[in-house]
């Protein structure tokens, strides 16, 4: 029958149309599912493990805070050594030259003298870097530390643009590492070995904090100028003395760097210029650069324009 034939032809057309539509719809509806599945997978990984352990031990979440007492910080010029916080951090994390996670800057004072300013990542509560990340590779963990998932980071460097403290660095290539780095297993809490093409920064030594230990820079500081504390428990320690955090901040005129930006950093400074160890603000001695006993030039060995004849190590 011609009518039937006609109907069948339309049917086939309809069939192709509908199956194409159904496939498209299925693909569209499935794509968020993939995202959800991946999120669940990620949650079951390290972050999940930590919060589960924390819950099992009946611990409440921490609010990790660092206090840097500039009255005690002499930039290690008195002991005639490189800044020991930076050095300890390098030895522990193998951060290459120019990418020291806790860098100590020499800041000029109004009267012409100088003070030293150790600068870790400020772990901002309203972190601009976390806001702009397009793939949620950088995030706050349950203790308020800003971590980076280097297995997800796409290397767009938007977070570096957003960070007003210049505390983020980029792995421009595979970094040069000492042999002992091979023993480390990567986790966002301890990003060693660093992953090429991703952003890296200070993690407040989240792996040590988790085990109830102090960060490397706090342990490494010979002047005990660095304190690690918990805003929730209102307590802080430099490894030698334990202080009541809120009182300690109030009584020592604590301030936060670039407070006006509204980033709410979790690092407090107590103003000073190393006077507790007798350093005068006019002290002309300069800081000694840190040492990389394994080379440490990292990928940055090729500062000059890179030609194709030179094959990197």
């Amino acid at each position: 029958m011609p009518e039937k034939g006609k109907a069948r032809r339309i049917d086939r057309r309809e069939f192709i149309k509908r199956s194409a539509g159904a496939l498209g719809l299925a693909a569209i509806t499935a794509s968020p599912l993939v995202a959800v599945v991946n999120r669940v997978k990620a949650a079951n990984g390290l972050n999940g493990a930590i919060s589960q352990q924390a819950n099992a031990k009946g611990k409440q979440a921490r609010a990790w805070t660092m206090i840097i007492d500039l009255k005690k910080c002499d930039g290690c010029v008195i002991i005639n050594a490189p800044a020991q916080c930076t050095q300890a951090c390098i030895n522990g994390h193998f951060a290459p030259v120019g990418q020291e996670w806790i860098q100590v800057y020499t800041v000029e004072l109004p009267g012409g003298g100088t003070t030293f300013l150790p600068t870790p990542c400020y772990q901002c509560e309203n972190a601009p870097c976390v806001n702009v990340c397009p793939v949620a590779a950088t995030y706050h963990n349950e203790d308020g530390v800003v971590l980076i998932d280097h297995k997800r980071c796409i290397g767009c460097r938007m977070c570096m643009a957003a960070c007003p403290y210049h505390r983020r660095f980029f792995n421009w290539s595979t970094p040069e590492l000492p042999p002992e780095a091979a023993l480390a297993t990567y986790s966002p809490h301890y990003p060693v070995p660093a992953v090429k093409g991703t952003v890296i920064k200070c993690m407040f030594c989240a792996h040590l904090l988790h085990d109830g230990k102090l960060p490397l820079c706090v342990i490494g500081c010979p002047m005990k100028a660095l304190y690690m504390g918990d805003l929730n428990e209102d307590v802080a320690t430099n490894g030698r003395e334990v202080v009541q955090l809120s009182k300690f901040l109030d009584e020592n005129d604590a301030y936060r760097y670039k407070e006006n930006l509204g980033t709410q950093p979790r690092v407090y400074y107590l103003p000073g210029h190393g006077q507790e160890f007798g350093r005068s603000a006019q002290d002309p001695r300069k800081m000694i650069p840190p040492v990389w006993n394994y080379g440490g030039l990292g990928f940055d060995y090729e500062v000059q324009p890179f030609t194709w004849k030179k094959v990197p190590k």
Partner: peptide
């Protein structure tokens, strides 16, 4: 830095960015 992961923008995309 990781063009191989550009698909992450679709899978993990955050509208805040």
């Amino acid at each position: 830095g990781r063009p191989d992961r550009v698909w992450n923008m679709v899978v993990f995309g955050r509208f805040q960015s």
